[in-house]
């Protein structure tokens, strides 16, 4: 499997962060950064990282299954994550999520057939004082209203 030169450079740097013989420490970061480039944690990606870090594919697989941000299927071009945990719930997070379901025609962890948007109801994303909060891919948006959400999504069609 080949990666972009930037990702290869990042991997090479990561491997210098851990004590000798403990390069497995790079596994979670490598999965996260590679997933961004590949679009999902594919079987080839797992095999490649297993080889590079000298662990079994099974050991990689059990790590992938544990973390909620690692996904084996590709998501939409924009992954819409709406927090409905307590602080957001108190300020309209649940209604915002329902609105997004209707607007996008999909539910929790689903992707539109067009591949444009995918949706996820997420737990607290660390923006509670500026609730309700959402993330579009890695970008935070605070104090989101249904109107603001519509505008944001329409700009990304």
């Amino acid at each position: 499997m080949t990666f972009s030169p930037e990702l290869e450079a990042r991997f090479a740097d990561l491997l210098t962060h851990y004590p000798p013989g403990r390069q497995r420490g790079a596994l979670v970061p490598m999965l996260m950064y590679a997933q961004d480039e590949v679009g999902a944690v594919t079987p080839e990606l797992m095999a490649e990282l297993a080889k590079r870090l000298d662990v079994s594919v099974l050991q990689v697989d059990e790590v992938v299954g544990y973390y909620s941000m690692l996904h084996k299927k590709p998501q939409g071009k924009t992954h819409v994550q709406i927090c409905t945990n307590v602080a957001c719930m108190l300020r309209g997070g649940a209604e915002l999520y329902d609105h997004a379901c209707k607007k996008l025609g999909i539910g929790h962890k689903q992707t539109q057939a067009s591949g444009v948007f995918s949706l996820e109801e997420v737990e607290c994303i660390g923006a509670c004082s500026w609730a309700p909060a959402i993330q579009l891919n890695y970008t935070f948006h605070h104090e989101v209203t249904t109107d603001k959400l519509d505008q944001l999504l329409e700009g990304l069609q």
């Binding site: 979670v28 973390y67 909620s68």
Partner: peptide, 20 residues
């Protein structure tokens, strides 16, 4: 980086995550 897991804020679980 973590990868989405509240439990990895617990100190010993965090150390496991740091070890891959």
């Amino acid at each position: 980086t973590g990868a989405g897991a509240y439990e990895c804020g617990e100190e010993s679980a965090l150390l496991e995550s740091l070890e891959g």
